[in-house]
Protein backbone atom coordinates (compact mmCIF):
# COMPACT_ATOMS: atom_id res chain seq x y z
CA UNK A 1 0.00 0.00 0.00
CA UNK A 2 2.67 2.48 0.93
CA UNK A 3 4.31 1.64 -2.41
CA UNK A 4 1.17 2.65 -4.28
CA UNK A 5 0.96 5.81 -2.24
CA UNK A 6 4.57 6.62 -3.00
CA UNK A 7 4.00 6.12 -6.73
CA UNK A 8 0.93 8.30 -6.59
CA UNK A 9 2.80 10.99 -4.73
CA UNK A 10 5.72 10.76 -7.12
CA UNK A 11 3.38 11.06 -10.10
CA UNK A 12 1.73 14.10 -8.62
CA UNK A 13 5.07 15.69 -7.92
CA UNK A 14 6.24 14.96 -11.48
CA UNK A 15 3.11 16.53 -12.97
CA UNK A 16 3.45 19.52 -10.71
CA UNK A 17 7.09 19.95 -11.76
CA UNK A 18 6.15 19.69 -15.43
CA UNK A 19 3.48 22.30 -14.97
CA UNK A 20 5.89 24.65 -13.31
CA UNK A 21 8.48 24.06 -16.02
CA UNK A 22 5.97 24.68 -18.82
CA UNK A 23 4.74 27.85 -17.14
CA UNK A 24 8.30 29.09 -16.74
CA UNK A 25 9.16 28.36 -20.35
CA UNK A 26 6.01 30.08 -21.59
CA UNK A 27 6.75 33.19 -19.53
CA UNK A 28 10.28 33.28 -20.88
CA UNK A 29 9.06 32.79 -24.44
CA UNK A 30 6.52 35.58 -24.11
CA UNK A 31 9.20 37.89 -22.67
CA UNK A 32 11.60 37.13 -25.52
CA UNK A 33 8.91 37.71 -28.13
CA UNK A 34 7.80 40.91 -26.42
CA UNK A 35 11.39 42.17 -26.37
CA UNK A 36 11.74 41.30 -30.06
CA UNK A 37 8.56 43.24 -30.82
CA UNK A 38 10.05 46.27 -29.06
CA UNK A 39 13.47 46.02 -30.68
CA UNK A 40 12.51 45.24 -34.28
CA UNK A 41 11.04 47.66 -36.75
CA UNK A 42 12.18 50.13 -39.38
CA UNK A 43 15.09 50.93 -37.10
CA UNK A 44 16.44 48.15 -34.91
CA UNK A 45 17.25 49.32 -31.43
CA UNK A 46 19.56 47.35 -29.13
CA UNK A 47 18.17 45.87 -25.93
CA UNK A 48 19.79 48.45 -23.64
CA UNK A 49 18.14 51.35 -25.51
CA UNK A 50 14.78 49.65 -25.21
CA UNK A 51 15.38 49.03 -21.54
CA UNK A 52 16.32 52.66 -20.94
CA UNK A 53 13.18 53.86 -22.71
CA UNK A 54 11.02 51.61 -20.57
CA UNK A 55 12.77 52.92 -17.46
CA UNK A 56 11.69 56.39 -18.53
CA UNK A 57 14.95 57.82 -19.85
CA UNK A 58 15.07 59.99 -22.95
CA UNK A 59 16.84 58.31 -25.84
CA UNK A 60 16.94 60.18 -29.13
CA UNK A 61 14.80 58.43 -31.71
CA UNK A 62 14.17 55.40 -29.59
CA UNK A 63 11.88 57.29 -27.23
CA UNK A 64 9.36 57.91 -29.96
CA UNK A 65 9.69 54.67 -31.95
CA UNK A 66 9.81 52.38 -28.96
CA UNK A 67 7.92 54.34 -26.34
CA UNK A 68 5.10 55.73 -28.43
CA UNK A 69 4.73 53.24 -31.27
CA UNK A 70 5.98 49.83 -30.22
CA UNK A 71 5.32 49.74 -26.50
CA UNK A 72 1.52 50.16 -26.72
CA UNK A 73 1.48 47.59 -29.51
CA UNK A 74 3.41 45.11 -27.41
CA UNK A 75 1.25 45.71 -24.35
CA UNK A 76 -1.92 45.30 -26.40
CA UNK A 77 -0.60 42.06 -27.85
CA UNK A 78 0.26 40.66 -24.43
CA UNK A 79 -3.00 41.73 -22.77
CA UNK A 80 -5.24 40.62 -25.63
CA UNK A 81 -3.37 37.32 -25.88
CA UNK A 82 -3.75 36.68 -22.16
CA UNK A 83 -7.44 37.56 -22.28
CA UNK A 84 -8.30 35.51 -25.36
CA UNK A 85 -6.24 32.54 -24.21
CA UNK A 86 -7.74 32.44 -20.72
CA UNK A 87 -11.29 32.96 -21.97
CA UNK A 88 -10.93 30.27 -24.61
CA UNK A 89 -9.60 27.74 -22.11
CA UNK A 90 -12.36 28.63 -19.66
CA UNK A 91 -15.07 28.07 -22.27
CA UNK A 92 -13.53 24.86 -23.53
CA UNK A 93 -13.15 23.41 -20.06
CA UNK A 94 -16.55 24.54 -18.94
CA UNK A 95 -18.39 23.14 -21.93
CA UNK A 96 -16.10 20.10 -22.18
CA UNK A 97 -15.65 20.69 -25.88
CA UNK A 98 -12.52 21.96 -27.60
CA UNK A 99 -14.68 23.56 -30.28
CA UNK A 100 -16.68 25.68 -27.87
CA UNK A 101 -14.33 28.61 -27.76
CA UNK A 102 -15.77 32.14 -27.81
CA UNK A 103 -14.50 32.88 -31.31
CA UNK A 104 -16.26 29.88 -32.79
CA UNK A 105 -19.56 30.32 -30.98
CA UNK A 106 -19.97 33.90 -32.09
CA UNK A 107 -19.14 35.88 -28.95
CA UNK A 108 -16.19 37.63 -30.57
CA UNK A 109 -18.41 38.55 -33.49
CA UNK A 110 -20.98 40.00 -31.09
CA UNK A 111 -18.41 42.21 -29.36
CA UNK A 112 -17.00 43.19 -32.71
CA UNK A 113 -20.37 44.11 -34.16
CA UNK A 114 -21.15 46.30 -31.14
CA UNK A 115 -17.77 47.99 -31.23
CA UNK A 116 -17.82 48.69 -34.95
CA UNK A 117 -21.36 50.06 -34.69
CA UNK A 118 -20.37 52.41 -31.89
CA UNK A 119 -17.31 53.64 -33.70
CA UNK A 120 -18.59 54.05 -37.24
CA UNK A 121 -22.20 54.95 -36.58
CA UNK A 122 -22.11 56.91 -33.32
CA UNK A 123 -18.52 58.20 -33.46
CA UNK A 124 -17.84 56.94 -29.96
CA UNK A 125 -14.42 56.00 -28.63
CA UNK A 126 -12.52 54.77 -25.60
CA UNK A 127 -14.17 53.36 -22.51
CA UNK A 128 -17.73 53.73 -23.81
CA UNK A 129 -16.96 51.43 -26.73
CA UNK A 130 -15.44 48.89 -24.38
CA UNK A 131 -18.43 49.01 -22.08
CA UNK A 132 -20.97 48.54 -24.87
CA UNK A 133 -18.86 45.81 -26.40
CA UNK A 134 -18.80 43.99 -23.06
CA UNK A 135 -22.57 44.28 -22.77
CA UNK A 136 -23.02 42.99 -26.30
CA UNK A 137 -20.73 40.06 -25.62
CA UNK A 138 -22.72 39.19 -22.50
CA UNK A 139 -25.98 39.53 -24.40
CA UNK A 140 -24.79 37.24 -27.18
CA UNK A 141 -23.51 34.71 -24.65
CA UNK A 142 -26.81 34.81 -22.79
CA UNK A 143 -28.76 34.46 -26.02
CA UNK A 144 -26.78 31.42 -27.15
CA UNK A 145 -26.99 29.88 -23.70
CA UNK A 146 -30.75 30.36 -23.48
CA UNK A 147 -31.34 29.06 -27.00
CA UNK A 148 -29.35 25.92 -26.30
CA UNK A 149 -30.39 25.55 -22.67
CA UNK A 150 -32.07 22.58 -21.11
CA UNK A 151 -31.80 20.07 -23.90
CA UNK A 152 -29.75 16.95 -24.27
CA UNK A 153 -26.37 17.45 -25.85
CA UNK A 154 -26.52 21.13 -25.03
CA UNK A 155 -22.87 21.61 -25.90
CA UNK A 156 -23.21 20.54 -29.53
CA UNK A 157 -26.38 22.56 -29.89
CA UNK A 158 -24.66 25.52 -28.33
CA UNK A 159 -21.95 25.43 -30.98
CA UNK A 160 -24.50 25.37 -33.79
CA UNK A 161 -26.48 28.20 -32.19
CA UNK A 162 -23.25 30.11 -31.89
CA UNK A 163 -22.46 29.65 -35.56
CA UNK A 164 -25.92 30.97 -36.45
CA UNK A 165 -25.70 33.96 -34.13
CA UNK A 166 -22.14 34.58 -35.28
CA UNK A 167 -23.28 34.74 -38.90
CA UNK A 168 -25.85 37.34 -37.91
CA UNK A 169 -23.24 39.43 -36.11
CA UNK A 170 -20.82 39.19 -39.02
CA UNK A 171 -23.56 40.52 -41.28
CA UNK A 172 -23.84 43.55 -39.00
CA UNK A 173 -20.09 44.10 -39.22
CA UNK A 174 -20.11 43.85 -43.03
CA UNK A 175 -22.99 46.28 -43.19
CA UNK A 176 -21.16 48.78 -41.02
CA UNK A 177 -18.07 48.42 -43.20
CA UNK A 178 -20.14 49.20 -46.29
CA UNK A 179 -21.53 52.29 -44.62
CA UNK A 180 -18.12 53.47 -43.49
CA UNK A 181 -16.30 56.02 -45.60
CA UNK A 182 -13.45 54.86 -47.78
CA UNK A 183 -10.61 56.11 -45.61
CA UNK A 184 -12.07 54.36 -42.57
CA UNK A 185 -11.99 50.98 -44.22
CA UNK A 186 -8.43 49.80 -43.53
CA UNK A 187 -8.95 50.79 -39.90
CA UNK A 188 -12.36 49.18 -39.83
CA UNK A 189 -10.92 45.96 -41.20
CA UNK A 190 -9.65 45.53 -37.66
CA UNK A 191 -13.18 44.58 -36.70
CA UNK A 192 -13.19 41.73 -39.15
CA UNK A 193 -9.79 40.24 -38.49
CA UNK A 194 -8.22 41.89 -35.46
CA UNK A 195 -5.18 44.12 -35.65
CA UNK A 196 -2.61 45.77 -33.40
CA UNK A 197 -1.95 48.71 -35.69
CA UNK A 198 -2.09 52.23 -34.32
CA UNK A 199 -2.47 51.29 -30.67
CA UNK A 200 -2.17 54.17 -28.22
CA UNK A 201 -1.09 54.03 -24.62
CA UNK A 202 -4.29 55.66 -23.34
CA UNK A 203 -6.36 52.89 -24.93
CA UNK A 204 -4.68 50.26 -22.79
CA UNK A 205 -6.16 51.33 -19.47
CA UNK A 206 -9.49 49.54 -19.53
CA UNK A 207 -8.06 46.34 -20.98
CA UNK A 208 -5.24 46.30 -18.44
CA UNK A 209 -7.66 46.74 -15.55
CA UNK A 210 -9.97 44.08 -16.94
CA UNK A 211 -7.17 41.55 -17.31
CA UNK A 212 -5.79 42.41 -13.87
CA UNK A 213 -9.14 41.70 -12.23
CA UNK A 214 -10.73 39.01 -14.36
CA UNK A 215 -7.73 36.79 -15.02
CA UNK A 216 -6.98 36.06 -11.33
CA UNK A 217 -10.70 35.58 -10.75
CA UNK A 218 -10.82 33.02 -13.52
CA UNK A 219 -7.82 31.26 -12.01
CA UNK A 220 -9.54 31.06 -8.64
CA UNK A 221 -12.65 29.66 -10.26
CA UNK A 222 -10.48 27.17 -12.12
CA UNK A 223 -10.27 25.04 -9.02
CA UNK A 224 -14.02 24.55 -9.06
CA UNK A 225 -13.78 23.82 -12.78
CA UNK A 226 -11.69 20.77 -11.96
CA UNK A 227 -14.81 19.17 -10.61
CA UNK A 228 -16.99 20.44 -13.45
CA UNK A 229 -14.72 18.86 -16.01
CA UNK A 230 -15.76 15.42 -14.78
CA UNK A 231 -19.35 16.01 -15.89
CA UNK A 232 -22.32 17.75 -14.33
CA UNK A 233 -23.52 14.77 -12.30
CA UNK A 234 -20.11 13.98 -10.87
CA UNK A 235 -19.55 17.61 -10.04
CA UNK A 236 -22.86 17.76 -8.21
CA UNK A 237 -21.94 14.66 -6.26
CA UNK A 238 -18.62 16.23 -5.32
CA UNK A 239 -20.47 19.27 -4.03
CA UNK A 240 -19.47 21.82 -6.64
CA UNK A 241 -22.13 24.39 -7.36
CA UNK A 242 -22.15 23.81 -11.08
CA UNK A 243 -24.54 26.48 -12.26
CA UNK A 244 -23.06 29.22 -10.14
CA UNK A 245 -19.51 28.37 -11.11
CA UNK A 246 -20.51 28.15 -14.72
CA UNK A 247 -22.26 31.51 -14.77
CA UNK A 248 -19.42 33.23 -12.94
CA UNK A 249 -16.93 31.79 -15.38
CA UNK A 250 -19.05 32.73 -18.38
CA UNK A 251 -19.17 36.29 -17.06
CA UNK A 252 -15.45 36.28 -16.43
CA UNK A 253 -14.53 34.84 -19.82
CA UNK A 254 -16.97 36.99 -21.75
CA UNK A 255 -15.61 40.04 -19.96
CA UNK A 256 -12.07 39.15 -20.97
CA UNK A 257 -13.07 38.53 -24.59
CA UNK A 258 -15.13 41.68 -24.80
CA UNK A 259 -12.49 44.02 -23.41
CA UNK A 260 -9.83 42.51 -25.63
CA UNK A 261 -12.07 42.66 -28.71
CA UNK A 262 -12.96 46.26 -28.01
CA UNK A 263 -9.27 47.11 -28.09
CA UNK A 264 -7.76 44.93 -30.80
CA UNK A 265 -10.70 43.46 -32.69
CA UNK A 266 -11.47 39.75 -32.79
CA UNK A 267 -8.02 38.23 -33.30
CA UNK A 268 -9.00 35.02 -35.02
CA UNK A 269 -8.58 31.64 -33.38
CA UNK A 270 -6.34 32.70 -30.46
CA UNK A 271 -8.98 31.69 -27.94
CA UNK A 272 -9.59 28.49 -29.83
CA UNK A 273 -5.94 27.47 -30.16
CA UNK A 274 -4.53 28.39 -26.76
CA UNK A 275 -6.42 25.89 -24.62
CA UNK A 276 -5.53 22.75 -26.60
CA UNK A 277 -1.90 23.82 -26.98
CA UNK A 278 -1.63 24.46 -23.26
CA UNK A 279 -3.18 21.14 -22.34
CA UNK A 280 -0.86 19.35 -24.76
CA UNK A 281 2.10 21.04 -23.09
CA UNK A 282 1.01 20.54 -19.51
CA UNK A 283 -0.41 17.07 -19.87
CA UNK A 284 -4.02 16.15 -19.41
CA UNK A 285 -6.53 16.30 -16.65
CA UNK A 286 -6.14 19.69 -15.03
CA UNK A 287 -7.57 23.07 -15.85
CA UNK A 288 -4.82 25.12 -17.39
CA UNK A 289 -6.18 28.62 -17.71
CA UNK A 290 -2.93 30.27 -16.65
CA UNK A 291 -0.91 28.30 -19.18
CA UNK A 292 -3.51 28.91 -21.87
CA UNK A 293 -3.36 32.64 -21.17
CA UNK A 294 0.42 32.56 -21.55
CA UNK A 295 0.15 30.54 -24.75
CA UNK A 296 -2.33 33.12 -26.01
CA UNK A 297 0.08 35.98 -25.29
CA UNK A 298 2.94 34.14 -27.00
CA UNK A 299 0.73 33.34 -29.99
CA UNK A 300 -0.37 36.91 -30.52
CA UNK A 301 3.17 38.23 -30.12
CA UNK A 302 4.60 35.65 -32.51
CA UNK A 303 1.83 36.16 -35.07
CA UNK A 304 2.33 39.91 -34.93
CA UNK A 305 6.07 39.51 -35.49
CA UNK A 306 5.33 37.26 -38.47
CA UNK A 307 2.71 39.64 -39.81
CA UNK A 308 4.99 42.64 -39.55
CA UNK A 309 8.27 41.27 -40.76
CA UNK A 310 7.89 37.97 -42.61
CA UNK A 311 6.27 39.36 -45.75
CA UNK A 312 6.57 42.35 -48.07
CA UNK A 313 3.32 43.78 -46.81
CA UNK A 314 2.51 44.23 -43.15
CA UNK A 315 -0.43 42.07 -42.29
CA UNK A 316 -2.61 42.57 -39.26
CA UNK A 317 -2.16 39.93 -36.61
CA UNK A 318 -5.62 38.42 -37.12
CA UNK A 319 -4.83 37.45 -40.70
CA UNK A 320 -1.86 35.41 -39.53
CA UNK A 321 -3.65 33.68 -36.67
CA UNK A 322 -6.62 32.97 -38.94
CA UNK A 323 -4.42 31.21 -41.47
CA UNK A 324 -2.51 29.36 -38.73
CA UNK A 325 -5.58 28.34 -36.76
CA UNK A 326 -7.85 27.00 -39.46
CA UNK A 327 -5.80 23.88 -40.29
CA UNK A 328 -5.83 22.94 -36.63
CA UNK A 329 -9.60 23.31 -36.51
CA UNK A 330 -9.87 21.02 -39.51
CA UNK A 331 -7.62 18.40 -37.88
CA UNK A 332 -9.76 18.61 -34.78
CA UNK A 333 -12.89 18.08 -36.87
CA UNK A 334 -11.49 15.06 -38.64
CA UNK A 335 -10.74 13.51 -35.27
CA UNK A 336 -14.11 14.44 -33.80
CA UNK A 337 -16.43 11.55 -33.11
CA UNK A 338 -20.08 11.32 -33.95
CA UNK A 339 -21.45 12.81 -30.76
CA UNK A 340 -19.57 15.99 -31.46
CA UNK A 341 -18.64 16.32 -27.84
CA UNK A 342 -15.24 14.87 -27.12
CA UNK A 343 -12.08 13.88 -28.88
Amino acid sequence: MSDALAILRQGRRRRWRRRLLVTGILVALALVLAAALLMLGNTIYPAQDVFRVIMGEKVTGASFAVGTLRLPRMIAAVLAGLAFGAAGAAFQTMLRNPLASPDIIGINSGCSAAAVTCILLFNMSGAAVSAISVLAGLAVAALIYLLAYGREGASGRLILMGIGVGALMDAVVSYMLLKGSEYDIPAAYRWLTGSLNAMRMDEMGSLAIAVAILLPLALVLARSLEAVELGDETAHALGARVERTRILLILCAVGLVAFATATTGPIAFVAFLSGPIASRLVGTGKPHILQAALVGAALVLAADLLGQFAFDTRFPVGVITGILGAPYLLVLLIRLNRKGSSL
Binding site: Y189, G322, L329, R338
Partner: peptide, 22 residues
Protein backbone atom coordinates in the same frame (compact mmCIF):
# COMPACT_ATOMS: atom_id res chain seq x y z
CA UNK B 1 -22.85 15.04 -39.16
CA UNK B 2 -24.52 18.45 -39.29
CA UNK B 3 -22.34 19.69 -36.47
CA UNK B 4 -19.14 18.65 -38.20
CA UNK B 5 -20.34 20.00 -41.52
CA UNK B 6 -21.22 23.36 -40.01
CA UNK B 7 -17.92 23.56 -38.18
CA UNK B 8 -15.88 22.48 -41.19
CA UNK B 9 -17.67 25.18 -43.16
CA UNK B 10 -16.98 27.73 -40.43
CA UNK B 11 -13.31 26.74 -40.35
CA UNK B 12 -12.98 26.99 -44.10
CA UNK B 13 -14.77 30.35 -44.06
CA UNK B 14 -12.46 31.68 -41.37
CA UNK B 15 -9.33 30.49 -43.16
CA UNK B 16 -10.45 31.80 -46.53
CA UNK B 17 -11.50 35.13 -45.05
CA UNK B 18 -8.03 35.49 -43.59
CA UNK B 19 -6.47 34.65 -46.95
CA UNK B 20 -8.80 37.12 -48.67
CA UNK B 21 -7.75 39.84 -46.20
CA UNK B 22 -4.12 38.93 -46.81
Amino acid sequence: TPIKLALAGAAATAAFSSLISA
